[in-house]
């Protein structure tokens, strides 16, 4: 079972990388970009075949290592 973990800077946490990307987009002439947030995606190939259990495992991994929940939020998607 494959799981995808999306890790994003928490709402309210400064994201200088996203801001810089926003500025660069503006520089390229893309108008109307209100905000950019940059995070990361981690793909897991898990032995677990049950989607609900796989999701639980991936969430546990995210809480313990993949995300730092002080500064980041995460979301797990089973694919």
């Amino acid at each position: 079972m494959k799981a995808r973990v999306y890790v994003m800077p928490k709402a309210g946490v400064l994201d200088p990388q996203g801001k810089a990307i926003g500025h660069a987009l503006e520089g390229l002439g893309f108008g109307g970009v209100h905000d950019v947030r940059a995070g990361k995606v981690i793909e897991l190939d898990l032995a677990e075949a049950d989607p609900a259990k796989a999701k639980q495992i991936a969430e546990d991994m995210a809480r313990k290592l993949l995300a730092n929940t002080v500064i980041e939020s995460f979301r797990v998607e089973i694919v």
């Binding site: 200088p16 730092n68 500064i71």
Partner: peptide
């Protein structure tokens, strides 16, 4: 220790 350390504000 509490808190987090983010990318420098200036990048």
């Amino acid at each position: 220790l509490p808190g987090g350390l983010l990318r420098n504000a200036t990048l």
